[in-house]
Write a protein that binds this DNA or RNA. Structure first.
Lengths: 192, 192, 192, 192
DNA sequence: GATGAATGAGAGTTCATTCAT
DNA sequence: CATGAATGAACTCTCATTCAT
C-alpha cells in the first residue's frame, strides 16, 4: 500500500537482476545458450518469465548481462602479475588458471561456444571484450618474459597465450585431461 | 522407356549428397549448428527441404555426414610425421597446421563449437572422434620428442598438443592473429 | 499493479482448457483423430496453436484429455442398474442407450474409430478404459439375467453386450437406422 | 525389344495391380489407412512408388480398389442362406461369421475404421456398399425368421443384424473375447 | 510398363516475446 | 514491481504426388 521509497525499489531491482543473472549463467554454462529457454531461466530463478523482460529487452541482452558480470572480477589474475619475481608471477598465473578451470568449468565452455559463432554482429561485443583481455595478457606475458631475459619475448608471450587457451579448451572438452600434470610441467619448465 | 540405370542413379545420388553436404558444411561452419535451419541448407544447396530427408534421417544425421566428410582427409598430417628427422617432421606439421587453418577457416570453428556443447549424448560421437585424433597426435608428438632427446617427452608432447589447439582457436577467433609470426617462431624454437 | 490472483488464473485456465477440449472433441468426433490437425482445433476453438501446448504436451495428451472428459459422466447408467425389478432396470438401460446415442452422436464414433486402431501402445490406455467399462456392463447384465431367472445368464449377458455395441455402431454409421423401432422391440422382448 | 502383345500387357497390368492391392490390403488392415504410407505399400509389394500411380490416381483411389476387391467374394454367405431349413441356414451363417472373423481379422477393423469417418464424401462410396450389404442381410434374416414362424420377424432380423456387428466389433477389439462361447450360445438359442 | 529422385504443402511442436491484470 | 496466459513465427520432419529417364 505504502509506496516504496526509491532505495527500496533499487534494492529490489538489484536483487531480482542478480537472481536472473545467476540463473542464466548457471544454465547457459551447463547447457549452452541455445539449449536454454527463457522459461527455464525463470523457473531456475524462481520468478516469472515476464519479470525477465522487465530487466532485459531480450534473451540476447540477458546474455550480454551475463558476460559483463563475468568479466568484472578477473582482478586476481592481474594481482598475480604484480609480483617482483617473474618466475613467481608465472607460477601464480599457472596455478590461478588451474583453479579457475577446475572451479568454473562451464564458463570457459560458454565463452568459447559464444565467441566461436560468426553470426553477424550478434556477439561482436563479446569478441571485443575477449580481444581486449587477450591483449592485456599478452602485454603481461611479454614483460614477464623480458624480465626473465629470454631472447624473443614477444614470441614466447604469444606461445604462452596459445598455451593458456589450448589447455583450457582441452580440459573443458575432456574430463580425462591431465590438467595437474600439465600445470606442474609448465611450472617446472617456465618458473626457474 | 527404360528406367534409369543403377549407375545413373548412383551418380545422381552422389551429386545430390555432395550438394547437401557442402551447403551444410558451409552454413554450419559460418553460423553454427543451431543457427542453421534445414530450410536454409536446402535453399543454399538449391534443392528442396524434402530432398535432404531422402538422404539423411535427421538434421543430426546430416551433421554426422558433414563430420565424416571432414575427417576423411587428414592423411597429410600423418604422412608428415613419417620423416626421418624429427625436426623436419615438426616443421612439416607446423606448416601443415598453418595451411590447414588458412585454407579451411570455419571448419575448426565448427568442430570447436560442436564439441563444446554439453547436450548429453547428442554430439558424443564427435567427442569420440576428436579424442581419438588427439591421442594420435599426442603419440606422434611424444615419439618425436623422444627422438629429439628432450627430458620430459610426454610433458612436451602435451604442451605441443595444447599449442596446436590454442593457436587454432585464437586464429579462428580473430583475423588479426599473427599466425605467420607464431608459426615461424615455433619452427625457430622447436626445429633445430 | 497487482498480478492476477490465483483464482482468476484458475478460472482462465479452466475456461481455456474447456474451449480446447470442446473443440477437440468436436473435430475428433466428426473427422477422426488423424484427420484433425492441431491447427484446426486451435482455429475451431478461436485460440492460437501455441496455447494448446500450454495445456497439453502433445496432440495425443489432448486426446487423452478428451477421453477422460467423456468418461466422467456415465453415472446415469449405473444408477439405472440399481432398480429392484430387473425388467425395469433393463428398460431404463435401453432408454438411456437410445438417448445417449441420439444426444451424443459422434462420441461413439470417436471411441470406435480410436479403439479400432492398431498402432501399438498409442491408444492402449483407451482400450483399457473401454475393456473395464465393458466388463462392468457384462457383470450388470449377468446379474439382471440371473434375477430374471433365465437359463444361461452369462450367455445372455454376452448377447446383450454385443447388441448394445451392434446397435450403437449401426446407428452411428447410418442416419436411417430405425433406432426407436429397435429399442421398442428390445423392451418388448426383454422387459416383461 | 519386341513390342509386347496386348494380352501380355494386360497380364502384366493385372499382376501388378494384384500385387499392389494385396500389399495395400495387408498394411491397411494391420496398421490402418492413415498409418500406411504409399512408400510402405510399394516396398511391401516389391515395386516402385511410381508404379502405384500408374494404376491408381491417388492413395484414396487405391483404397477404393481394396474395398471393391474385398466386397467381391462374399458369395459364401449367400450360399449359406439358400438352405431349406432356416435353423440350418442360421447355423451356417453363425459358423461362417466365426470363421470369417478368425481368418480375416483386420479386415473388419479396416471396414469399421473407414466407415466410421465422417469426412464429407471421402468414403461415401463405402457407406453405400455397406448399406447395401446390410440391407441384403436384413432381408435374408427376416425371411429366415418368417420361416421359423417367430412373431416379429422384422424386429428379430434387426436384432440379428446388430448382434453380428456387435460380436464382430468386440472380437476385433479384444483378443480375449469369448467368440467360440458366444457363437455356441447363439446356435443353441437360435437354431432349434 | 517401371523407376526413384525430387518436390512442397502441411503436420506437430517449441519458444521468445507481449500484455492485461 | 510482478505474473503467466496468450501469441505466432519458425522449427524439424513426413509424405502424397510428379516426372525425367
Amino acid at each position: 500500500m505504502t509506496p516504496k521509497t526509491k532505495e527500496q525499489i533499487a534494492k529490489i531491482r538489484t536483487r531480482s537482476k542478480d537472481k536472473i543473472l545467476m540463473a542464466a549463467l548457471d544454465l547457459f554454462a551447463k547447457k549452452g545458450y541455445h539449449n536454454t529457454s527463457v522459461s527455464a531461466i525463470a523457473r531456475h530463478a524462481g520468478i516469472s518469465k515476464g519479470l525477465i523482460y522487465n530487466y532485459y529487452d531480450s534473451k540476447e541482452e540477458l546474455l550480454k548481462g551475463v558476460i559483463e558480470m563475468l568479466m568484472e572480477d578477473s582482478s586476481e589474475f592481474f594481482l598475480a602479475t604484480q609480483k617482483e619475481d617473474p618466475n613467481e608471477a608465472l607460477r601464480s598465473l599457472f596455478v590461478l588458471l588451474k583453479n579457475y578451470l577446475i572451479e568454473k568449468r562451464g564458463l570457459y565452455r560458454l565463452a568459447v561456444s559464444l565467441s566461436v559463432q560468426e553470426e553477424v554482429g550478434k556477439f561482436e561485443f563479446l569478441k571485443d571484450i575477449i580481444e581486449e583481455k587477450f591483449q592485456g595478457f599478452l602485454t603481461v606475458f611479454e614483460s614477464l618474459m623480458t624480465k626473465k631475459g629470454v631472447k624473443n619475448a614477444k614470441g614466447e608471450a604469444l606461445l604462452l597465450g596459445a598455451l593458456f587457451d589450448g589447455i583450457s579448451l582441452q580440459y573443458t572438452f575432456s574430463e580425462k585431461y591431465p590438467l595437474e600434470e600439465v600445470i606442474d610441467f609448465l611450472i617446472e619448465k617456465y618458473c626457474k
